[in-house]
């Protein structure tokens, strides 16, 4: 029998953990490649407790055609400098405009929103991210590492050009890559990586395109691994008022913004 830590469960912020609306200042912009960039945004006051998997909802003031806020995963948190790091992929008008912000610009942020991945102790954890779905996994790997877990992260991308930001994961565990064209790491999808066959894990945490997460869920099911996924449904408010971002679960429609974004796949109708 492999050691199984199944006591950990998805964490929800307590009532005392208030949601905030604050102006942050853009203090650093890092272009990773033509599609991906990292924004460092700084608060004027100490940050509240932020859990891995939680997200921010950012107003895009520099583009009048963007009406609603844009929900973005929290990539990393630096409490000493009051800085939140956002890993962004240019997809639509909103994310493109965020990439055009200048250092010193203010951004209005509603945060911290949503729930957190489980943080087990002394378990073997597998993190699988696809594309910009990798965003919440860095901060998660930090928490998992600190709780004494063995952390293996697989980043699945199209080619080596997209295999960006890997160094940040190194302090917290092993980082592996799959590329669709074989230009870096193993060729194929992250769920085809040999480590899934050769090693066993207690937990699989994933974020990324739904087909990839479904493949992770299928792997987890076949190997009896606890699997948590982070969903990215479109939403208007981010804090449970509009009821637009629901996902169909075994217990009916649940808001991804307040009852997620992290779900145990066993609760979903996948």
């Amino acid at each position: 029998m492999k050691p199984k830590n199944s006591n950990a469960s998805i964490l929800y912020p307590s009532k005392s953990m208030k949601k905030l609306i604050q102006d942050f200042e853009l203090v650093k912009y890092e272009e990773l490649n033509c599609e991906h960039f990292v924004l460092d945004i700084k608060a004027n006051e100490p940050l509240p407790e932020i859990l891995p998997g939680q997200f921010v909802n950012v107003r895009v003031d520099n583009n009048k055609s963007v009406f609603l806020r844009r929900p973005l995963s929290i990539h990393n948190v630096d409490y000493e400098r009051n800085v939140i790091q956002l890993f962004v992929k240019r997809i639509g008008e909103g994310t493109k405009s965020l990439g055009e912000l200048k250092i010193g610009d203010n951004v209005s942020v509603v945060y911290p929103l949503g729930n957190s991945y489980s943080i087990p102790k002394n378990a073997k954890t597998l993190l699988i991210g696809g594309g910009c779905g990798v965003a919440p996994l860095l901060y998660l790997s930090k928490f998992l590492h600190e709780a004494g877990n063995e952390v293996t992260t697989i980043l699945g991308v199209r080619s080596s050009y997209d295999a960006v930001g890997l160094k940040a994961y190194e302090p917290y565990g092993r980082i592996l890559v799959t590329t669709e064209d074989g230009s870096q790491g193993e060729k194929g999808y992250p769920t085809q990586h040999s480590v899934l066959e050769n090693e066993s894990f207690d937990y699989a945490f994933t974020c990324g395109p739904e087909p990839m997460m479904k493949a992770v869920a299928a792997y987890a099911e076949s190997k009896d691994v606890i699997c948590e996924v982070s969903l990215e449904n479109t939403m208007a408010c981010g804090f449970g008022a509009c009821l637009c971002c629901v996902t169909d679960t075994k217990k009916g429609n649940k808001c991804v913004c307040t009852e997620g974004p992290v779900f145990n796949v066993k609760d979903l109708k996948w």
């Binding site: 509009c242 009821l243 637009c244 629901v246």
Partner: peptide, 17 residues
């Protein structure tokens, strides 16, 4: 239960729900 997802779309200066 309400309607299935997707339930919202951003439109010029507004949104559909």
């Amino acid at each position: 239960e309400g309607n299935p997802y997707p339930r919202m779309a951003e439109t010029p200066s507004g949104m559909l729900n």
